[in-house]
Design a protein around this nucleic acid. Structure first.
Length: 234
DNA sequence: CGCCAGGGCCTCA
DNA sequence: TGAGGCCATGGC
């Protein structure tokens, strides 16, 4: 129960500091928009969003940022358009597999079945792992599911090592958050976006603890201060 | 120049 | 089921 308070405080602090990130708000998304979110979720795998934006823009200009466009495209041609997002040959295959999947399970259909079932279906698609599936569920389908990524693990391992030390698998991390937060899609949506912002700009591999908005709440920072005071290195 | 980014698949014990 | 290799561009 201490954990719940802390997770809430971290959220409030980040929201106040960074303001709402407005990634993909939960309300009123067109069919086209939701499709784009899915494509973005796949293209951003282990890749900076900056590089993904260029790829999305190329697809848009080619009138191919839609289901039919990707379905009809040559895989080679597709790969070229998304080149900037890296792993472009692999990702071209993944996009193909995804639009193939949509023929059997369009987003409108996925939306209607249970979260667990749609997740399993998504996980069956080549190129969609747990994080990508959950990003699609949360950002395209507004399902209240918490997305775990590399930033999440790094940040919370540092902030509360004693609470997270035993977490290993993806699903264990996810359970940690969903059992300690209200299952609210808007909250999960904003929280994850804030985590990414923090991970990108402060809680990097080499963290900028001095300027971090969470340094007062962070165990690692407290430890670092202690070590510094003793004139040891981190 | 090296490191890293909003992972996931495949292989091999 | 866990570790390790592979995929690849662009920013810093």
């Amino acid at each position: 129960m201490e954990t719940k308070i802390l997770l809430q405080e971290i959220y409030s602090t980040l929201l106040k500091e960074f303001k709402p990130q407005k990634w993909w708000p939960t309300k009123s998304k067109s069919k086209e928009r939701r499709f784009e979110i899915c494509i973005g979720a796949i293209l951003t795998q282990n890749t900076s969003w900056k590089n993904v934006e260029k790829a999305l823009e190329n697809l848009r200009k080619a009138k191919m940022l839609n289901e039919q466009g990707i379905r009809n495209a040559e895989e080679k041609e597709l790969a070229l358009l998304i080149k900037s997002s890296g792993y472009y040959n692999q990702k071209a295959k993944k996009l193909k597999a995804f639009v193939e999947f949509l023929q059997s399970y369009p987003l409108e259909k996925l939306e209607k079945i249970t979260q667990e079932k749609s997740r399993d279906l998504l996980l069956g698609v080549h190129g969609i792992g747990k994080e990508t599936a959950d990003s699609i569920l949360l950002y395209a389908l507004n399902k209240p599911i918490f997305v775990i990524d590399a930033y999440t693990k790094r940040i919370f391992s540092r902030i509360m090592p004693e609470k997270t030390r035993n977490l290993k698998e993806y699903d264990e991390w996810q359970e940690f958050f969903s059992s300690n937060l209200d299952k609210d899609a808007q909250l999960f949506n904003e929280y994850h976006a804030l985590i990414v912002n923090l991970g990108k700009n402060f809680c990097k591999k080499k963290p900028l603890c001095g300027e971090c908005p969470l340094n007062k709440k962070c165990k690692k920072q407290q430890l670092y201060n202690l070590l510094t005071a003793l004139n040891l290195s981190s």
